[in-house]
Design a binder for these strands. Structure first.
Length: 387
DNA sequence: GTGACCGGGTTCTGCCATAAGG
DNA sequence: CCTTATGGCAGAACCCGGTCAC
């Protein structure tokens, strides 16, 4: 490892970094640093020093990055090869991003986390940016995504592929709003190869057909818009989850199709083990509470998102509801109450208890409402306490 | 008006492995 | 051998309000 402590970045913050030798966006020369690898001919120190003359890092590049506030240590850890390159375009990149409204810290952070960004030419950047701008209204939106996930934007150097992806997604019937949500939420989708995206879409269509669905295209589109992460998952993962759901719930084809078309889509991208673990612990917990297998199945079909909830969270949430005087039967009928955080539920149960709210009489729907509506309800109840 | 029903919104990167190309 | 481009993985819920039948 060795190298520049992260702190260094902080020390160089206000040093000006502007325009040192950059033509055409490229910084033409970082003298590949007095080029001799440190110990090229060291005969002295024995075995460990016999390392072959790997390219040395480009000292002037390092200096430049330091001036820009880049965390060089981080960059080195992520993509060491970039630091050894003779020609890079960090100044061009910085100016480009600055022109798009990115601040100095954001730029430094982007390079620190995805160093290869500095190998892209201005022409490439312009082109890619324009393609993204087909989907985003403002530069600021794009900047915020880059800040969040530099890799999504910079990992691929294939702008053609990006363009084809957009065309493809449009051809599937995704509208401007869908694309916007998709690129915002799962930007990596657009850096996938067109082939990979196609594979997933076709996989989904095949599933639909296999299950006897009549409109595979519609089905695939539905799954994609319900689960924006689906295209950045492997077909293997999605397939395994589908198989597991089918097997553990003993679903018929049509039941499975309905599940996937509905909210089931939302849990398809969970990691296989996680989904399995959650299913097992849910079944176990429910069995312990006296439920039958059919109850478990019904619950999951009506509220697949329950499988999204980790064992501990779920367990404490259920306990909290039961302790608050709500029955398992009621939960099975209105599983959406599980949507809300344990903390939220606990607070509401407490308030309702103070007011003597009768869940047997009034049901538990009151727990499944927005904060505003709940508050309004509480106010009314306090004004005219029920009997 | 009100509450049940339902759909929608937000959210998800940063790392590692490996094939391909040099 | 190297670097680059790309695929894949783990991680893990909560909240809001429109609408419509009553």
């Amino acid at each position: 490892m060795a190298g520049v402590p992260g702190v260094r970045a902080l020390l160089t913050v206000q040093r000006s970094v502007t325009l040192q030798h950059s033509f055409f966006g490229f910084t033409p020369i970082h003298f590949a640093s007095a080029c001799f690898p440190r110990r090229l001919y060291s005969t002295s120190t024995g075995s460990t020093e016999t390392k072959p003359p790997v390219n040395p890092e480009n000292e002037s590049l390092l200096e430049n990055l330091n001036l820009m506030g880049v965390d060089v240590r981080m960059a080195r850890q992520r993509q060491p090869g970039v630091l050894r390159k003779t020609f890079t375009n960090e100044n061009g990149l910085a100016q480009f991003l600055q022109g798009k409204g990115a601040g100095r810290k954001v730029i430094a952070s982007i390079i620190s986390r995805y160093p290869r960004a500095i190998t892209r030419s201005i022409e490439h950047l312009e082109q890619r940016w324009q393609l993204w701008r087909n989907i985003f209204q403002t530069d600021a939106e794009i900047v915020s995504i880059l800040d969040r996930s530099p890799e999504s934007f910079f990992r691929s150097s294939d702008n053609d592929n990006l363009e084809k992806n957009i065309d493809y997604l449009v051809s599937l019937g995704l509208n401007a709003k869908d694309l916007h949500r998709l690129l915002t939420t799962a930007p990596r989708t657009f850096s996938n190869s067109l082939e990979l995206n196609k594979q997933m879409v076709e996989f989904l269509e095949d599933i639909c057909t296999e299950l006897g669905g009549s409109n595979p295209e519609q089905f695939a589109k539905m799954v994609m818009t319900r689960n924006l992460y689906i295209l950045i998952r492997s077909t293997k993962r999605v397939k395994t989850n589908i198989d597991n759901l089918k097997a553990s719930l003993k679903l018929s084809d049509s039941e499975l199709l309905a599940l996937l078309q509905g909210h089931g889509a939302e849990i398809l991208d969970l990691s296989n083990e996680y989904l399995k673990k959650n299913f097992n612990s849910l079944e176990q917990k429910m069995t312990a509470l006296g439920c039958r297998k059919a109850d478990v199945k019904k619950l999951i079909i009506n509220y697949p998102m329950i499988l999204y909830i980790g064992p501990d969270t779920l367990s404490s949430k259920l306990d909290c509801l039961l302790k608050g005087g709500i029955t398992m039967k009621q939960i099975l009928e209105k599983p959406k109450v599980l949507d809300y955080s344990t903390q939220n539920i606990t607070g509401r149960l407490e308030e309702l208890r103070r007011l003597g709210y009768d869940f047997q009489k009034n049901g538990i729907n009151i727990l499944d409402s927005s904060r505003k509506r709940f508050a309004a309800k509480i106010e009314k109840l306090s004004a005219s306490p029920e009997e």
